[in-house]
Amino acid sequence: MGTPSNIKLIDENGLRLDGRGDEELRPIKITTDVLERADGSAFIEWGGNKILVAVYGPREAYPKHTQDIEKAVIKARYNMAAFSVDERKKPGPDRRSIELSMVISNALSSVVFLEQFPRTSIDVFIEVLQADAGTRIAGLTAASVALADAGIPMKDLIVGCAAGKVENTIVLDLNKEEDNYGQADLPVAIIPKTKDIVLLQMDGDMSEDEIDRAMDLAINASLKIYEHQKDALKRKYFSIAQEDEQ
């Protein structure tokens, strides 16, 4: 963030490095039910991001001291593969991934009806196979789809998007170059039905007006991504129904 560079992130026509306008999203594709052994799973391709999410549970929580006698606990683990970034990432949890695991767990806990499953844990494994900025939001978006695929009762899906500031312009859905060399990055995740914010972080700096504008952009884009999520969940059943008709 804010590393000086001579890359021109926005050209004279107002287009970004990958040819997008300020308010344009990268292409998103979500697939569910990609893993046989998991109770629920999802795979999301969002621009250059490729993230696999597996959900197990609700199942008895181990070690036993992590159990809550009144409700389930969500244990999300965000992990980046060693090969997910240009320079090899040292495997294993680090400061960043521990933090992201926590904020994602907290976000998911706000939509799942935890009190229905006392003493259990719901394990969410988020594996980033290829990273291209915005992985926490992409991972969280896919995780909520995987939870729905697992048949876990929820108030709503969670959906998010990032916005940021690049060359003094507020832009939507930063890519890797914009994330590395831009001025600010603001990931937002919401519950689409109520518009409650369940995750909000910021790296870099923006003025109050800029934050308002970035939040508006991100929330509007999230509602579009919400449609992708619902589509992904329905698609599986449509395809079986169609096979039968033939």
Partner: peptide, 10 residues
């Protein structure tokens, strides 16, 4: 209100 999921545990 509640819905029945297509799959989920018992």
């Amino acid at each position: 209100m509640d819905v029945v999921p297509f799959h989920g545990s018992y």
